[in-house]
Design a protein around this nucleic acid. Structure first.
Length: 197
DNA sequence: ACGGAGATCTTCT
DNA sequence: GAAGATCTCCGTT
């Protein structure tokens, strides 16, 4: 399948989040493909999104969000978790799409090894879980997702029909106020068992 | 099945 | 010094 292009990401975060559903997230580990269909995403829009790391201004952590679209923004939170985002919208506009869940396809042996003691259903059903399963961490921050050379990219998949798509408020936004708290910027595929709860 | 809390450290105020 | 785009464990039901 073709790799998604820079143009794909150079659009509003909500559009990219919607269209990433059904695409294939691919990680290369020891020369092997480890992949999963994207089944859940969240959009974090620009400077005016009070739930986004990109709000207000550029900082050492969020600097990748301000860079060119199509790159990986990977950050550390809660003292133990890494979360993977795809930067979108034109450069200097700090927007990104959080990848919240994937449906494992290739390299399941490697995922199992990265998620010891867990049943398959818990390998990739959450943003920190999928990062762990695909061995995504600090080293992957800033990688170009449109270039296979970095070992992490996204390939086009079969489009998800509207009737299989669901939207709702984003998850885990503790002290964020309205209207950002309830904007329907979480997208998922109906009835997919890997969507986080 | 469900709910509460701890883990653990980076980032920004 | 406090909070965080989460997960897991352990308690009770």
């Amino acid at each position: 399948m073709p790799i998604l292009t820079r143009e794909f990401y150079t659009r509003p975060a909500t559009t990219v989040a919607r269209e990433l559903l059904g695409a294939l997230l691919v990680r290369e580990i020891d020369g092997q493909r480890v992949s999963g269909l994207i089944v859940e995403t969240e959009a974090y829009t620009g400077l005016d999104d009070m739930a986004s790391h990109g709000r207000k201004r550029r900082t050492p952590r969020n600097t990748v969000m301000y860079g060119a679209p199509g790159h990986a923004y990977v950050y550390f939170t809660y003292g133990m978790h890494w979360l993977l985002n795809a930067v979108c919208e034109p450069e200097d506009q700090p927007a990104a799409v959080l990848l919240r869940a994937i449906d494992p396809q290739e390299g399941q042996t490697i995922m199992a090894a990265n998620r010891p003691g867990r049943p398959p259903r818990e390998w990739t059903s959450g943003p920190a879980r999928l990062a762990k399963a695909l061995a995504v961490a600090r080293d992957q921050n800033g990688l170009d997702l449109t270039d296979q050379g970095g070992g992490l990219w996204i390939e086009a998949g079969s489009p998800v029909p509207d009737e299989q798509m669901r939207t709702g408020p984003r998850i885990g936004l503790g002290s964020v106020v309205e209207p950002w708290l309830s904007m329907p910027w979480r997208f998922w595929i109906a009835d997919n068992p890997f969507v986080s709860r």
